[in-house]
């Protein structure tokens, strides 16, 4: 039995091929598993172990170190409220309090309808735009309780809240697990080629005798 869907299995193979050693793909594949199901299941870990030459315990060992990986089901939307120093100074804790009160769950909890999981998180690099929160890692800057209520309202009614979000991000908010709505894809004819540490032969070609000459072409 295989865990990954056919499309995701292809993606997984492509991801592994980007690295000199398959174990380097463990974190990207955990993201892929989470994209498929919203959280990381035991079956997913078993398959990632097979794909990367590790044991399932090693996959759990690595995965459990990182906060973004969930080993139990979470809401369709994970709301992260920053309460670190810059946000705290401007009301981040009060914003978290509002989020908890209005959704009826404490940080760490998920609403009964499976829509929202709330987390009290560390700095998310939006300090000058405090206080801020993210929904599935999409930013909402200089947020107040009204911003949050409107975002919840949008999501419950099936609308995208990103117009209220940080400048430049638009489109829809994918369900929890999907980070990028698109991926890096390297066409085979453009690939320089993975250089494995075992091949440690000599300096790369452009460092040998004559320096490279810049072409006039724009590429």
């Amino acid at each position: 039995m295989t865990y990954f869907t056919e499309a995701n299995a292809r993606t997984a193979a492509e991801v592994i091929a980007n690295y000199p050693r398959p174990r380097s793909a463990i974190i990207p594949l955990l993201h892929l598993a989470q994209e498929q199901e919203g959280w990381v299941t035991r079956d997913a870990m078993v398959e990632i172990a097979e794909l990367t030459g590790a044991t399932p315990a090693e996959i759990l060992g690595t995965g459990s170190f990182y906060e973004m990986f969930k080993f139990h089901p979470v809401g369709r939307y994970v709301v992260n409220v920053c309460t670190n120093i810059s946000c705290q100074l401007l009301g981040g804790e009060e914003l978290l309090h509002h989020v908890e009160e209005s959704l009826g769950v404490h940080a760490g909890g998920t609403t009964d309808d499976g829509m929202f999981t709330v987390e009290d998180v560390e700095c998310v690099a939006a300090c000058t735009e405090a206080p801020c929160f993210t929904v599935n890692y999409r930013y909402f800057h200089r947020a107040d309780p009204d911003t949050f209520d409107a975002v919840v309202d949008d999501l419950r009614s099936g609308r995208s809240p990103l117009a209220r979000g940080a400048q430049g991000d638009d489109g829809h908010v994918p369900a929890h697990g999907t980070l990028g709505r698109l991926r890096q894809h390297v066409p085979d004819d453009r690939r320089a080629g993975v250089v494995s540490p075992e091949e440690a032969g000599e300096a790369p070609v452009w460092l040998r005798p004559a320096p490279a000459t810049a072409g006039d072409s724009d590429g």
């Binding site: 980007n18 906060e67 453009r190 072409s217």
Partner: peptide, 23 residues
């Protein structure tokens, strides 16, 4: 042609791999 094989038609070739952290 700015990244990958033969960057700007030179013998300089390199892949840039985007890698995601996880918190």
């Amino acid at each position: 042609g700015y990244v990958g094989r033969n960057v700007c038609d030179t013998d300089f070739s390199v892949d840039i791999t985007l890698h995601w952290g996880a918190g």
